[in-house]
Design a binder for these strands. Sequence first.
RNA 1: UGCCCGAUGGUGUAAUGGUAGCACAGCAGAUUCUGAAUCUGUUUGUCUAGGUUCGAUCCCUAGUCGGGCAGCCA
Length: 602
Amino acid sequence: MTSEKDVTASPSQAPSDFVRDIVAQHVAEKRYPKIVTRFPPEPNGYLHIGHAKSICLNFGIARENNGQCNLRMDDTNPTKEDVEYVESIMEDVQWLIAGWADHCLGFKPKGKLPEATGTGSTTDFYLGAVNPAAAGGTSGLEPFFASDYFDEIYAFAVTLIKRGKAYVCDLSPEDTEKYRGAPDKPGVDSPFRTRSIEESLALFERMKAGEFPNGARTLRARIDMTSPNVWLRDPVLYRIRHTEHHHTGAKWCIYPMYDFAHCLSDYIEGITHSICTLEFEVHRPLYDWILESLGLPRPLPHQYEFARLSLGYTVMSKRKLMQLVQEKVVLGWDDPRMPTISGLRRRGVPATALRQFAANIGVTKFSSLTDVAVLEHAIREDLNARSHRRFAVLRPIKVVLTNLAEGQVVQNEAVNNPGDPTAGSRMLSLTREVYIDADDFMEVPPPKYFRLRPGGEVRLKYGCVIKCDEVVKDASGALVELRCTADLETRAGGSNATKKVKGTIHWVSAASAIDAEVRLYDRLFNVPEPDADGDFKAHINPNSLEVLTAKLEPSLASATLEDRYQFERLGYFALDPRDTALGKPVFNRTITLKDTWTGGKA
RNA sequence: UGCCCGAUGGUGUAAUGGUAGCACAGCAGAUUCUGAAUCUGUUUGUCUAGGUUCGAUCCCUAGUCGGGCAGCCA
């Protein structure tokens, strides 16, 4: 495979799957001088974790074969697309592949268009890539745009007409549908199918010139109205849309359809392997028909299909995600509860974890439902290795250590990561007043409860064992504070340091703790397949976000956006990059720690 | 009732004519100043019926079940 070290994570060798097998065979045959893939999102929404699977596949294949993967905006429908999406896509892709496949990313000089390389009767166009890493950054570069090829695609359409393989059709949208027939019923030829080449040529030019209203005419391929594959029943190649385009402005009023534009865009860029999802499988004969009908001089790209990702407890279509945003179920496309790449990033999920996840789930043609536990495992595994441990108390209970003097400070060393000796340590101050988490004290605990109870003992981690002498309540019966005695001889190095107690809990000093907003996220839906009954909004988890003010150990005042933290016994947390302000930290819980305690119920 | 694609433990995936393996989840134990991590062990599987073959998860046929396809969306 590759001789380079995979920087995703040490254990991940290049995965193997049927697409990579095909590519490997082509490499062995030396079929192409270089393997070129592409990631071609339509800029009509934000990228989600399903796209991440595709990105990892396409860029993975490129990097494993010393190839290249072009980022291309598949923007042939001006009514649905927007530059906002172009920008988010660029950011998300570059974030996901950073440090892994940047050297394979294909961009192009800003404004650069394909060059006509054809001679004589053969029409040919080519547009090569520039790598941002090699070019010293993305300034002056941009991704590819299918809309940059409108001139060339138009020229190819004219060629098709001249070859008698396409014609201008005057059927209305409704009639076009009727004539198409049904999957089990053959279609009927359009009355305009026999139109002369000259007339189609003239009409097509007038369509381009804007002489006809939307929907008045289309350019259609002349294939076979009786084909069992409905996509071969004279598919529409061009439609009239008097709409400005986010990238080409007002230049065009006719726009190519996906099927026509995609294969040609692949060809123009010199793509060798055009990898897409299963629903395009029935389009493949059309993809091939168009390219083969043009008599193109360079090697043709080929399409390969794999199963899109379905993840438990979430929805994955852009339409549904858009709905969640528009109906304010979430706070935006990058809401940390969203399965979008931007949402996962904001939640604190590292790109390496997403890449490892993609490698773990594999690539097949079987439509499966992936257990969220697989994603969660990849995130925990990544975060466990890299996160410094910190103490944070989410729901504070005050504990007074009655045998410590006011102002007395007992310093304790706490390691930053028990699995990584190089991570160092920091000091924690034990004082007369500390906070512990409400979950770590129960007046009437269930069986096997290891934590603090009246008259019971527990260890304050990196501190000492304490004993609960008194539970103080107010007139209403609400807990005010716990009065405990600390046994300082049980500290590390003390005469009773190895004293065994059932529970060890985290804590913070009331004297030095800092306040911070902490956001606890839970899954957005409360059933594994929210859309199984077609009503995904009925299964929204009303408690997917809980916001609280927590007490944090003081070292967290210097937390950075880049670092990941494990709040011990609670989970992994990261600073929210959008809402954190100077002196006002906001932490997002990326994921809880795995919790095998049944809560005494078992 | 047309065409295309698929089917391996609970879930996801390997094995491409020769011992059904891995991961997640689960369970049990060890260990633990995180009920985490780590370590050890372990339950559970080739959709059905025929055929080819010394031998079939793999090749062939039929069936069953599942997914996709009838936008001037992608």
